[in-house]
């Protein structure tokens, strides 16, 4: 017994050492990754003097001053206006993205369309095409439409399935489904649109949720488009309001800005924790099953 233990001594501990090493790396990296976020949230509850004097993230004398004063903003509107504006952009954008992507993906996945191969190649090309090459003509076009300083340029294009990535995600999901349910529905006299709404949509719900979540998140983060198209402060979304606030108050009130940054990412943060599985599935469906 004893000799056997000595013989295999260090090898026996190898799995433990391995796990120890892995945990060590993960904890170290995880700490560095999450610390800026903790520091932001903690800083939102500190007073300014403490932000500059301590690198810890737990406030010693928690205060909501940052939230109270930050909410008032340095403009004539409260932060509520900017949050509401963001929703006025993001919600229509998510809805039209989902509808148009599902409809187009259904066409690609289930029909023999003339020139389908070419259309699919064009769809994928839109994923790789840098947006800045379209920026100026789109701006001029929307100026002709009289859409400047409205929210239309921010979501009208998405009603036409312009984001190939989402269409691709749903096509990939549809391709994995067995066809017998849909064929049975056709036998029973459903037309293809009824098949889509009654049979396909409930089954592809996970893919729809992934698309909606990604589009929500990306639209919340979007900065360049509102920057170009919106000129009146009363129409600003959170992204522009935050940028404006650091230009105005940077030297003094970090706690206000950190508090408003915390509020700005809160919706994304909550959705991420509530629906992480859909983010992972959405991201990996194209890459791994592809």
């Amino acid at each position: 017994m004893v000799t056997a233990t000595i013989d295999t001594g260090w090898r026996k501990h190898l799995p433990v050492l391995n796990a120890f090493l892995r945990y060590g790396i993960l904890i170290l990296v995880g700490f560095v990754m999450i610390y800026p976020l903790l520091w932001m949230i903690g800083g939102a509850f500190k007073n300014n003097a403490e932000i500059f004097s301590s690198i810890g993230f737990i406030p010693k004398e928690p205060t909501t001053d940052g939230f109270v004063n930050g909410w008032k903003t340095s403009t004539e509107y409260t932060f509520a206006t900017y949050l509401l504006n963001t929703m006025k952009i993001v919600i229509p954008k998510v809805i039209v993205t989902v509808i148009s992507s599902v409809v187009v993906a259904y066409g690609f996945a289930r029909f023999a369309i003339p020139g389908r191969k070419w259309l699919f190649a064009l769809l994928m090309a839109t994923v790789l095409l840098p947006k800045s090459v379209l920026l100026i003509p789109q701006y001029l076009m929307f100026r002709e439409f009289g859409w400047l300083d409205t929210y239309l340029p921010l979501y009208a294009p998405q009603a036409f399935a312009t984001e190939g990535f989402f269409v691709f995600m749903i096509i990939q999901f549809m391709r994995t489904l067995p066809l017998d349910m849909e064929e049975a529905a056709v036998m029973d006299g459903c037309n293809s649109f009824q098949v889509l709404t009654l049979i396909v949509c409930p089954v592809i719900l996970p893919a729809i949720i992934s698309v909606a979540l990604f589009q929500f998140m990306w639209s919340m983060n979007d900065f360049l488009q509102p920057l170009i198209y919106l000129s009146s402060v009363e129409k600003y979304p959170v992204a522009l309001a935050l940028k404006m606030s650091i230009d105005v108050t940077e030297a003094t009130s970090w706690n206000e800005i950190l508090a408003m940054s915390t509020i700005a990412i809160a919706p994304s943060l909550i959705l991420f924790f509530a629906a992480q599985k859909y983010f992972v599935e959405g991201l990996t469906s194209g890459a791994v099953k592809g």
Partner: peptide, 17 residues
């Protein structure tokens, strides 16, 4: 009918891309 479903993409592609 198939072409009808992909029409939004075709219009969007021509107009916005």
């Amino acid at each position: 009918i198939g072409s009808l479903y992909v029409t939004p993409f075709v219009i969007g592609f021509l107009l916005f891309t």
